[in-house]
């Protein structure tokens, strides 16, 4: 049996402590230990973006961080951002614009797009595509996703929710 390491983190505002193997990724920690399965796991190489979460305020690939490394950190997952309403408008736009089919890429898309719109709500379609270039979608062909992000950006700029 390998050594277990204590990990104490705040996840979506709640403190949790677990003892885990060093090799456990933050993505598997969230999914298996905490049953927060909104964080998806695709490639485990940092390429697909499905596992994107916010760690200490910055978007991060949770498959490329070990849970032990996040000790003391603050993590926000798609569950947290949807419960607190931060991405309400984006979720609605994704729904209305059919920007998801199987939904596998959606949590990562929402978190990445939200980060872009916070910095730059008037992002052009080219800028949106550039920012989402690290998030793969195998269903939609991206067009509807860009539409949804653009629409949300316009609404946020207009002050509308």
């Amino acid at each position: 049996m390998s050594t277990l390491y204590p990990v104490t983190v705040t996840v979506n505002g709640s403190p949790v402590t677990r003892h885990v193997e060093a090799r456990l990724s933050l993505s598997d920690f969230l999914r298996q230990e905490l049953e927060l399965t909104g964080t998806h796991v695709g490639c485990e190489q940092g390429v697909c973006g499905a596992c994107t979460v916010r760690l200490d305020g910055r978007i991060t690939r949770s498959c490329l961080v070990f849970a032990v490394q996040a000790d003391g950190g603050e993590i926000e997952t798609v569950e947290g951002l949807s419960d607190n309403g931060e991405i309400d408008d984006l979720q609605t736009a994704f729904h209305e614009r059919n920007a998801l089919q199987c939904g596998y890429c959606t949590p990562g898309m929402l978190i990445t797009a939200n980060e872009l719109l916070k910095k730059n709500p008037s992002a052009s379609r080219a800028e949106i595509r550039e920012e989402l270039s690290g998030n793969y979608c195998r269903c939609t062909g991206y067009h509807a996703i860009v539409d949804a992000v653009e629409t949300t950006g316009r609404q946020r700029q207009g002050g509308a929710k």
């Binding site: 994107t52 910055r58 978007i59 991060t60 990445t112 980060e115 872009l116 920012e131 270039s133 690290g134």
Partner: peptide, 9 residues
């Protein structure tokens, strides 16, 4: 270099 989420770390 890579993408925002990779540049974070």
């Amino acid at each position: 270099i890579a993408h925002e989420a990779i540049r974070s770390r």
